[in-house]
Amino acid sequence: MTGLSGAAPVVTLTRARAVVRRGIIISSIALIGIGVAAILALGFTPIEARQGLAQKIFYLHVPSAWSALLAFSLVGIAGGLYLWLEDPRLDLFAAASAEVGVAFAAVMLTTGPIWAKPIWGTWWTWDARLTLTLFLFFLFVGYLALRAAVHDRHERARFSAVVGIMGLLLVPFIHLSVYLFRTLHPQPIVLKPSAPSLPWEMLRTLLVSTVMFTLLYIGYVTIRYGIGLAIDAREQSDAG
């Protein structure tokens, strides 16, 4: 383990700086990649006949939903592993992933209604998929508030691990909600047992965008993890 509980703060700080730098490089590459994916979506992918240009929101909405659900799932997994192994790195990672997940969920929850308005005729509907997703977002906003309110490091990690696991349990319900309940939200067209049901050009653009959003998730989590390391270094220094 690198300097979270035992090593001198100066070593941890050096490591924090290196981690932040790595995160900035990864995030910059991903942001450029997302720009390329946007150009691909706007200029080199066919316009859907029934929805018009609004369908191109798909290339933002689906990758941001993927990244948010990936982030929240990993918070739950890291939380479970923390309760078992009590390795503070897992708690630090979970905190980073939760915050980044909230940012991606904000993209998902704003682009979704903007897409819904011209297609469904309404910004929002209280069906299972949308309501559960909004609930998951608020759960992780609460997770971040909980972390800010509890000062004892071990208590904070244990409490937030339990909330993270609750969030993880919601993720499969959200994915399957379109099969389980009547909903306006379309069923999965890629992550389903049969082959993806969209033309190759659209699938290609979606895949490029999803890879870049995933890379951006990795970059943001790396920076946020580095910030966590630096905060730990400060706390150790203040305590020492």
Binding site: S27, Q51, G52, A54, V107, T111, I114, W115
Partner: peptide, 24 residues
């Protein structure tokens, strides 16, 4: 002709860009 929904697309891309760059 496909429906004229370009304004919604522009709004979504601007909002997403603002959130992602703002968080960065």
């Amino acid at each position: 002709e496909p429906p004229a929904t370009g304004g919604y697309m522009v709004a979504a891309y601007v909002v997403a860009g603002t959130i992602l760059l703002g968080y960065f």
